[in-house]
């Protein structure tokens, strides 16, 4: 059963991931991304990480890809791209080099750290009758707001800085021009 679920979810993830890079239409590519994110959510549920699965769907599928689509529609770039024309001629060979490098790093990480894969850590508390239905969420909340609270808060500050920076850069204040023209 678990293998079957894993197989289906893995298939969803792979089909979606391949779709993101091969579909020539931006909206179709974004929808393929949704498929991948759902596959990841299914894998989380299969591992009893229900809270992560819910957050995965709410944040990634429900907000981030919706914003992608929103931008695609608003900017009017929602038409089929010709994949043969090349705006940056060096980008394809560079992409090959970068992806080969990434594969190399991942393989190296897995081979050197293969011992860690077999050791089991504390793991997620599986919510059942003995632990209560919220065990999973409680465990996550405790680690976020005690052990990793600094990292958590710093990340949120980083996001705020990014948002404020984007607003500042994208918004041209014309007030100076108006005053000089008067």
């Amino acid at each position: 059963m678990e293998f079957f679920v894993f197989g289906c979810a893995a298939l969803m993830i792979l089909v979606g991931a391949v779709g993101v890079i091969t579909r020539s239409h931006p909206v179709h590519a974004a929808l393929s991304l949704v498929l991948t994110l759902f596959g990841v959510a299914v894998l989380f549920v299969a591992q009893d990480a229900h809270f992560l699965a819910a957050v995965q769907v709410i944040v990634y599928a429900g907000a981030i890809v919706v914003l992608f689509l929103f931008v695609i529609m608003l900017l009017g770039v929602d038409r089929v791209e010709n994949l043969r024309t090349e705006p940056l001629t060096a980008q394809r060979p560079l992409a090959v080099i970068v992806s080969l490098g990434l594969i190399g790093i991942l393989v190296a990480a897995f081979t050197t750290g293969s011992g860690a894969l077999h050791e089991r850590g504390e793991g997620i508390i599986v919510p059942d009758l003995s632990t209560g239905t919220d065990a999973n969420t409680t465990q996550l909340a405790e680690s976020i707001f005690s052990d990793y609270v600094v990292a958590f808060e710093v990340t949120s500050v980083l996001l705020v800085v990014a948002v404020v920076g984007t607003v500042l850069l994208s918004r041209r204040i014309k007030s100076v021009e108006v005053e000089t023209s008067k």
Partner: peptide
């Protein structure tokens, strides 16, 4: 176990 978060996820879908 995620209860109402499921409703939020569905409404965002």
């Amino acid at each position: 176990p995620i209860g109402v978060l499921f409703a939020l996820a569905i409404s965002s879908i």
